[in-house]
Amino acid sequence: MRCVKMKGSEASGKRRHISLLSLLSLVMLAGLSAALAWAFLTPGPDPLGLAHRVDAALAESGVESRVTAVLLNYRAYDTLLECFVLFLGVAIVWSLQPSRPVRQEPRVDPVLSSLVRLLVPLMVLVGGYLLWAGSSQAGGAFQAGAILGAAGVLLILTSSRLLSTMPKGLLAWGICLGLFFFLAVAVGAVALGGNFLEYRRSSATMIIIALEVVAAFSIGLSLAVFFGGSRPEEPSERTAAGRPPHGEGEEP
């Protein structure tokens, strides 16, 4: 009886402890929000930002959309690295070794499959439109890539073996294609006497559109691969999959 009592009091003490901790963190979070709000609301220096500079250089950028100009011309280096972040994500997801067999083929829902048949072409079309629109208004490679990725996700939902049945290596090449092209454009500019990623005025529009197309393709592919969640097994791997990673010789 006493034992039970003690356990009870202990538990309540624990609870009190936890609640004190959460109270403390609540206070700290409240303090943080107050500080953030204070920093946000107090008038500080109020610079103009880069809008006017972007506008001034827009004529040379090769596109009419300001955001696209920033993304693929003024700050194209960021975009290049960002594509590498996607690539990195794919590499990491693929590097995680499955600890149990890849999930079973889902039951294919007739509604879903017919919907997919209907939706996917439409999505590709919308993606294309977004790409094309990107040069003059809202839209661009990432939006298009996202739509394409969604189309890919739908396809995977109807056939989970889709990624693994693709010809060997094609997927990897597809993902790398955009990056190779981007790098080639960047280094090619240097080889032609410009700076890294510097386009000539005459060819800027064309280069940017080409970049957008290729980037959208790679992005869409990467997003779909993310959804796949693991490396599509290659035929030779099928037997090896499913081994838990507790082998000897591992560092414990």
């Binding site: 880069l50 809008a51 006017h52 300001r66």
Partner: peptide, 9 residues
């Protein structure tokens, strides 16, 4: 009036 595109990017 002028919207800064850089934060958007």
């Amino acid at each position: 009036v002028i919207i800064d595109p850089v934060p958007h990017a």
